[in-house]
Amino acid sequence: MIEPGLRRIVESIMNPTSIANDVVLRAKDCDIYYGAYRAVRDVSVDIPQHKVTAFIGPSGCGKSTVLRCFNRLNDLIEVFHLKGKMTYHGQDLYAADVDPVEVRRRIGMVFQKPNPFPKTIYDNIAYGPRISNYQGDMDELVETSLRRAALWDEVKDKLQESGFSLSGGQQQRLCIARTIAVQPEVVLMDEPCSALDPISTLKVEELMKELIQDYTIIIVTHNMQQATRVADYTAFFNAEVVEGAGGKVGYLAEFDETQKIFSDPVQPETRDYVTGRFG
């Protein structure tokens, strides 16, 4: 008879993905197809609440694809379909009665390229709340969102100017502010800093650390230093060429605490990647 506490520890050693206790998003044995082509296989990952989880891996390994599955943005691609189960607080995201619009309101997304709408800064932030019929004080919400995105001081005097008048880094923070204005629970970030200079990158990273108190963040990044700086957990994706499959197939190679992934990974391929031997 083993003590329950000890058993949990043993289990967590045996199965590292069960470390997290509050799982927000869970992928179980997910395969992602574009038509007949299987782009990603065997993804099982638990995203813990109020933590930053990083997806790293070489190009074309399906990190962004998996990320987009979490808020059903891949639905926009006609030939896309998912096999396996993705759940959000236990609710199947791909169940027939689930409204993707509802999913996206709870699971927001920040894109690789800053993509403000061709509207004023104010309207960029107000857009999301307006479409979801926000009843409260819009001015206040805009201010809080911009403050949280550490952009308020830079734009407070020009809220009625176009979102395009901002610099790239400011635009990206505007997009983050826009996303948190709808008050989602999870924020997905698809290489949010890849188009930004180092100073803007640092600002966005600091921002993520701030946001983590209220949100759960998943970030796809090519920058391993970034993963070590911001992420609590890291998932390493890899890709392999499959004969006759018409291309590379991505898969989840390893998922663990960031520190473990970078200092003492289980898989040799992970070690090779994080030490810069390929990728």
Binding site: L76, E102, F117, P118, Y127, I131, P184
Partner: peptide, 18 residues
């Protein structure tokens, strides 16, 4: 129009109509 615009809007939970 850049596809990012459409994705950005959908990503915020907008309907196709909106």
């Amino acid at each position: 129009l850049p596809p990012e615009l459409r994705q950005g809007s959908y990503g915020l939970g907008a309907t196709r109509w909106g």
